[in-house]
Design a protein around this nucleic acid. Structure first.
Lengths: 235, 235, 235, 235
DNA sequence: AATGAATGAGGTTTCATTCAT
DNA sequence: TATGAATGAAACCTCATTCAT
């Protein structure tokens, strides 16, 4: 004869839209607070972070905190937005050209892998994945500024001469996503779960070359099959 | 006049291995509690779930909860372990054979994609990623029973006749990981972040076929390049 | 089928020295809380007191309680320290001189007895004795500020002229402790256990005189044996 | 603007009179339970002991515990009663006669000191003092079987020939209490608070002789003043 | 605008006691 | 009679949020 069935789990206050009553106006203070929030959210996640902790780390009072951000949820959103909008794009902006098509793609692959396993990316991935149900718009923002931007830039590059002359890519966006997927071989999944994994430059280079080889074996126009790559054991 | 700099954020108590003093012994009740825990942990994550809530959902008192599991951390571990050990392997056990190599691989790819985006996998991925720092052994367990088992089975299959006669795969494990990575094209990342994504059987089949095509273009022995695949727009 | 033999009974967390992160700073509020704590601890002891109860009695919220004192143990220590450091010394500071040596000692004895059976002393004795195992430093503090101070002052007085001329006390500290022990005749032990006992001024005076008589019969220089004292029945 | 004033502190259930519904009848089991209760109560006090712990330590189930004792309070009372009635008297039953009056009294004093600082006495003193407010009858029982019995026996001995011929003790009971008080010099108070104190046989003998000397200097009939006693510093 | 003391609901966990087996 | 799983009240403590200064 169970009692009431109702509210399972903790509820977030309905995610207030940003900036209804927050009155703080100093950009410097705002940045200072966000810096503190970044450290604490990154280390402890959303639920594990406390506003007192953030205020202390940021060097402001809790009152000031609430002058700039209406609630913990709003502060969390602002933190994620700032990271995705400001930090991610800086890490992946243009494609370093190489002497050959394969070299250029290897540069891209290496940069992608390093981006994916960078601390900031892993942290964003972690907190966003864990709070995706409560803050769906953050996942969208992250995806737009992260993976989507990366694959879009790559797709555009694939479709642009002179690369397009050497390639046969009917659907550049999908091909770019396959390339992006191949770049996640072995390393990305383990890194996201903080499992031990070889992230040496040599192994990253091997994964990158392997991804390029597999990619070009399908999408290179009239090309020969590329030879397999040697590497000492995947640890 | 900032105060002392005490450690920011909360800490988990050293993750107790598993129950030491719990006295509950009824398997049915234990399963009942784990079922409730599953619902709440899955929806709210570790920090977001409350023991009161789990007890209510499971239909037992909090005292009973603690008779079966010494702490929230222990309950969480038991829940993850049960899911990874019991649920995951059931979903990916053998490779359905098809008429051709490509058909067999397409079966594998389809099964993998469906496994990856199954609610149970997504949920496990979410909670494990978000708590990987606090419960590292759970990440290891999940990886061992999930992705690692999948790639191991696939690698073994690739190295076994008659497939091995048709293929040229010097490093089957790495190749299997590339195949696994290719299967995550477009869908997996978005699903993990609960972003809207086409998970229709048709699109999954397309991604699977595309993965197989790219894979075989590299690893098929003496094969011709496979033709590109048509699909209506990646949404 | 007994389970593991985990440690029986509860343990106190390692007795934290004193507040580390408490942020409350208002001395008035702190005193207000300590007053409430005093009432509850005095009546119910350490284990029997609850923080909710202390907060209610002090007229503050539980949050405020924890702003001023990091934990129950810290609050308890602060309460004991305050009582021993502030209350006890005030009650026994100097020796009222009388016309004769015996009169002076009777003043001392009377004051000692009244101190020992004062509510504050009895309460401190009670809670410290019961928690001596968990808070050893509190017992030390109490002893230093209570009995030890009393006997030290008395010993110094005994060794100082003109008393020293009238006495023959080779070991003043031990003699003072004997005097202190004699002052506890009949009354002190019963009072500590809250047993009914005659604490009238007359009976206290009788016990004091009896103690002085026995003391001087040993330590008075060249004195005659003092005659016995009449008193109507020890109840 | 304080809220409601009401129930301060935790309340004990009205101390149920023993044996209303308890149905256990095996004396062996009862003794077994009391033995477990003794260990736990002695170590953790009344509030700090848990019935589960006692049941485990005694090797019985909690159900059996409640078959023999209606409540924790009843069990505690039974434990104290048993200790005071059975253990204490065994430790102080008769007075060992010596060649002289002083020798006999020194035997008594030594035995008293050792009784007072015996673990069982200290433990009983501790738990009874701390719970005297909640269980007043236990304090009475302890006092009757402990200090009161000791002083009564001593008073009777003092009043009995041949001692009475050598002494001049108008009020033997009060004199016995003074003797009892003198025996507590230096050691007893510190031991009750678990403070470090010299309890060597030599120091106990010194305290005993000192007590006897002071006692006889007052109560010995026509005797000379006894000389002071040397001892190396009271540590 | 900035502070931080105050709040009180809610977190995890313990425990005396009951009762079906 | 003996068991120990189940209960739910209450323990200590935290934290997002408010508001007087």
């Amino acid at each position: 004869m169970a009692a009431a069935p109702p509210p399972p789990g903790r509820d977030h206050p309905p995610v207030q839209p940003v900036g209804t009553t927050a009155t703080g106006t100093s950009p410097a203070k705002r940045a200072q607070i966000l810096a503190g929030a970044a450290r604490i959210f990154a280390e402890h996640g959303y639920e594990g972070a406390s506003m007192s902790c953030i205020a202390r780390d940021a060097g402001v009072s809790k009152g000031t905190l609430y002058n700039y951000f209406d609630s913990k949820a709003v502060l969390f959103c602002a933190f994620i937005e700032q990271c995705t909008r400001e930090k991610l794009p800086l890490m992946f902006r243009r494609i370093d050209e190489g002497a050959t098509l394969a070299e250029s793609l290897e540069h891209v692959a290496t940069a992608l892998i390093q981006l994916i396993i960078s601390p900031i990316s892993l942290m964003l991935n972690r907190v966003i994945v864990s709070e995706a149900g409560n803050f769906p718009e953050l996942a969208q923002t992250f995806w737009t500024h992260g993976p989507q931007q990366a694959t879009s830039i790559l797709a555009a590059w694939l479709a642009r001469a002179p690369q397009s002359d050497l390639l046969d890519v009917p659907d550049p966006l999908f091909a770019a996503e396959q390339f992006y997927a191949l770049c996640q071989t072995h390393i990305a999944g383990r890194a996201r779960m903080q499992l031990p994994v070889d992230t040496s430059d040599e192994y990253i280079a091997f994964v990158a070359r392997s991804a390029v080889r597999v990619f070009l074996n399908t999408y290179q126009r009239d090309g020969q099959r590329l030879p397999p790559l040697p590497y000492r054991a995947t640890p």
